[in-house]
Nucleic acid binder design. Structure first.
Lengths: 210, 210
DNA sequence: GCTTTTGAGTGAACGCGTTCACTGAACGTG
DNA sequence: CACGTTCAGTGAACGCGTTCACTCAAAAGC
């Protein structure tokens, strides 16, 4: 072992390769069969390891799901937050929501499970989701403040609380969608945000949502 | 068998008694140990039947949970909707939310599971929850219209959409509470409703939430 | 009263997620 | 190079929810 580079070592390399193989196989199985129908033994067999090996690398089946899909969600979040196209607050909020809805729409078999796991995650995944929610919340607050600078919303409006309201609407729309109660989560989000913003406009510029 | 009364018959009576015994035992086990930790074999043993009998009366373990606790939720909902004490729209909405929060607070061990099952229920329970949500939604709309008659909210405000916003806030506050992110769901609900109502007031009577 | 049908109740067996005592190859040390 | 140590990987075993061929007493038909 030299002082410059921490040599990976055959053992570490093997372990990382095994872990990656399991993860890739798991992603495939989950997206094909859904969460409940996916079989840990089958994933292990396809990845060329014993059943026990899967649970050596991941705490349990749900942990495997999180590990397999969290990266994608993080990438979606990073991209959505990076969006800097101009527009009204409503338009920018719309695009933010639409990016996340697209993430779920891409995985129809898994979206119900994904949403459930996102909302009701246990540690350590709970902390990671909270962190990501905080990042998006921060973005919403930033968009709100930018709109305030443009005179789009009132000076005394509570930006942080608006961010919370946004998440309420976002999650409610998602739940309604996965439960089949509403065909278009984006449309529902737009309407709710529009009604909420009614009272947050400058006094001179009030427009009501019907 | 006479034409007037459908005689229960020993068999029917036995079956109903068995079902009731299982349900009572299940309720006890669920509230004591939580959903995952509760054991179907143990419930069966305590109810004095074989394991298979439990799943003869209920489709699966989750179905048993629903059957064991749905009545309580329905009673809570019925009582909350019946409340006719006077007050401002915000006060009445507050009481409505508080009644449901109290239902969950009464079952700290189960509340996370209960909420998850309420939001992501599968048929046939999904239909029953939808029905109950619709009833409460109707009540919110009625409260909103009553407030409108009092001149508390604008004539052209969308009452149905306000009802949807209420549920968004209600569920978000509940989720935040069971996940430990917010200590008081009622306070969060109040603040969100107050901000939402900003823009729905008559033009002459605008007050902003900070 | 005797026979047939019905359906509540049974429990061994199955598939699944998960555990853990064990194996052996890679690694550090003299 | 020989030795003990570490740790990725194993697979039989466990507990659980769930299934289903079976039992037998109650109801229905004769």
């Amino acid at each position: 072992m030299n002082a410059f580079t921490q040599k990976p070592g055959r053992r570490d390399a093997q372990r990382d390769a095994t872990r990656a193989r399991i993860l890739e196989t798991a992603r495939d199985h989950f997206e094909r069969h859904g969460f409940e129908a996916a079989n840990v033994r089958a994933i292990a067999a396809d990845a060329g390891v014993a059943a026990g090996t899967v649970l050596l690398h991941f705490a349990d089946k749900r942990d495997l799901l999180h590990a397999a899909l969290f990266d994608d969600l993080a990438a979606t979040a990073a991209e959505a937050v990076r969006d800097d196209e101009p527009g009204t607050l409503e338009q920018r909020i719309h695009r933010l929501g639409a990016a996340f809805f697209a993430y779920y729409a891409r995985r129809p078999t898994l979206s119900k499970t994904l949403l459930r796991e996102a909302l009701f995650a246990d540690p350590p995944w709970q902390a990671r989701f909270t962190e990501q929610v905080a990042a998006v919340h921060g973005r919403v607050v930033a968009l709100f403040n930018a709109a305030r600078a443009q005179g789009e919303v009132a000076d005394d409006a509570d930006a942080a609380l608006f961010g919370v309201a946004f998440f309420s609407f976002y999650y409610f729309a998602l739940i309604a969608w996965v439960q089949g109660a509403h065909p278009s989560p984006v449309a529902l989000l737009d309407r709710l945000v529009a009604q909420h913003l009614c009272g947050l406009r400058p006094a001179a510029n009030v427009r009501r949502a019907r």
